[in-house]
């Protein structure tokens, strides 16, 4: 490899790294300026379509794109009547025990996963704000793993399940009372469909 290609590869790596940075949601600081906002990457232009309203051909005719019409696709797991639409499991304080009432819901998720081996889930463990943060990260993981074990026991494959614990860092309810805490002690089941990137929870 010549020196030039090495240098180019080096610059390319830095650029890829920087692009990765934006994707990760962390803003690096460049020397002393205003805080750089996290900028979401602009969607790539649709193939064939130029920038809207930009073309100005001769003879006065103006062309513009119509944009793509959105296409909807419903999913069976979103049927409000299905137990699969229940994707949050709640827990008692400092406990990772799945309540009996939630076992039926988890059984439905497990059989859906077992029937659709290409579908994956991420189990996000959460706690309420009480107590210390790193201990709560441990507790959130224990909850996520308790749900994972039940799903596996009920027929889902371990390769379909991933767990992550946020502890008390991402409350569902920002309140500082028992009602809010009860909503925050939870595991969220986040589905990842084949070919789909995980969306915002």
């Amino acid at each position: 490899m010549s020196i030039r290609t090495t240098v180019l590869a080096g610059i390319g790596l830095v650029l890829v790294w920087l692009a990765g940075c934006t994707g990760m949601g962390v803003t690096p600081r460049a020397g002393g300026g205003a805080p750089a906002e996290v900028v979401e990457a602009a969607p790539a232009p649709a193939p064939g379509g130029g920038p809207a309203g930009a073309a100005q051909p001769e003879a006065g005719a103006r062309t513009s794109g119509a944009g793509g019409a959105p296409r909807f696709q419903g999913m069976s797991i979103d049927n409000p009547a299905s137990p699969l639409s229940h994707r949050t499991i709640y827990f008692d304080f400092d406990s990772a025990e799945v309540k009996d009432a939630d076992r039926e819901i988890l059984a439905a998720h497990a059989s859906y996963l077992s029937a659709n081996p290409q579908v994956r889930v991420i189990l996000e463990g959460h706690t309420d704000e009480r107590g210390s943060r790193e201990y709560n990260i441990g507790l959130g993981e224990r909850r996520a793993k308790a749900v994972a074990r039940l799903l596996e026991f009920m027929g889902a494959s371990p390769s379909q399940i991933e767990t992550v614990s946020y502890g008390e860092e991402k409350p569902a309810d920002p309140g500082h009372n028992e009602a809010a805490w009860a909503k925050n002690r939870r595991v969220e089941i986040v589905y990842v469909m084949p070919g789909q990137k995980r969306d915002e929870p």
């Binding site: 690096p28 600081r29 020397g31 002393g32």
Partner: peptide, 9 residues
Amino acid sequence: LVLGWALWL
């Protein structure tokens, strides 16, 4: 700018 991460001042 290219090495912005290295500064991150």
